[in-house]
């Protein structure tokens, strides 16, 4: 009887091990299949991305940009003097010759105002700080419009190509 029980135990243990191994194998195979599927998907997506990139690169190629510039934008390369080396150099343009030597003799920098400011007169517009008397002010902003106009209409800015002198 004891021998039978022992054999039964062995058979049960062996069956359990085999079943466990089978489950692990099946799970591993399933994972492997999932990885393969993912790989295939990745490759397909890569190919698709390449196709889209090819179209994008063709549409944004240098000859296309040149054609757009020649026919529409008409931009030209900046001259050497137009390229500034620092914000300080930019700020120096605010000071004209008349500002170079202030009347009181004290060194006085140019007074700058932000390029885009809320137009005065609109509801909720904060009062702007007043520049010192006699300072030259560079000011650029949206034109003041009647409060009845919608804000989107007021903020619309139309740009036009800058007329070019000479050939590009």
């Amino acid at each position: 009887m004891r021998q039978y029980l022992s054999a039964l135990a062995w058979i049960a243990a062996t069956t359990a091990v085999v079943a466990g191994a089978q489950i692990i194998t099946t799970k591993a195979a399933a994972e492997r299949r999932a990885v393969t599927r993912l790989n295939i998907e990745l490759v397909e997506n890569t190919v698709r991305i390449r196709e889209l990139e090819a179209e994008l690169r063709t549409r944004t190629g240098m000859p296309e940009l040149q054609r757009w510039n020649d026919t529409v934008f008409q931009l030209s390369a900046p001259q050497g003097a137009q390229i500034l080396r620092s914000p300080v150099q930019l700020a120096s343009f605010a000071a004209g010759p008349e500002d170079a030597a202030p009347a009181d003799g004290a060194a006085q920098g140019p007074s700058l105002q932000y390029a885009i400011t809320p137009p005065t007169g609109l509801p909720g517009a904060a009062p702007q700080p007043q520049p010192p008397a006699g300072a030259r002010v560079i000011k650029a902003g949206f034109p003041a419009v009647a409060p009845s106009q919608p804000a989107a209409e007021a903020a619309r800015v139309t740009t036009a190509p800058t007329p070019q002198g000479g050939r590009r």
């Binding site: 790989n39 990745l42 490759v43 390449r50 990139e53 090819a54």
Partner: peptide, 28 residues
Amino acid sequence: AGEIVAVTAAPPRGDIVDRNGIELARTF
């Protein structure tokens, strides 16, 4: 896995790009 994808997704002929990575030639 990344290497496997890179190899299998490799184009039939290598791309040619400029010094800033802009495509000059590609195969699709």
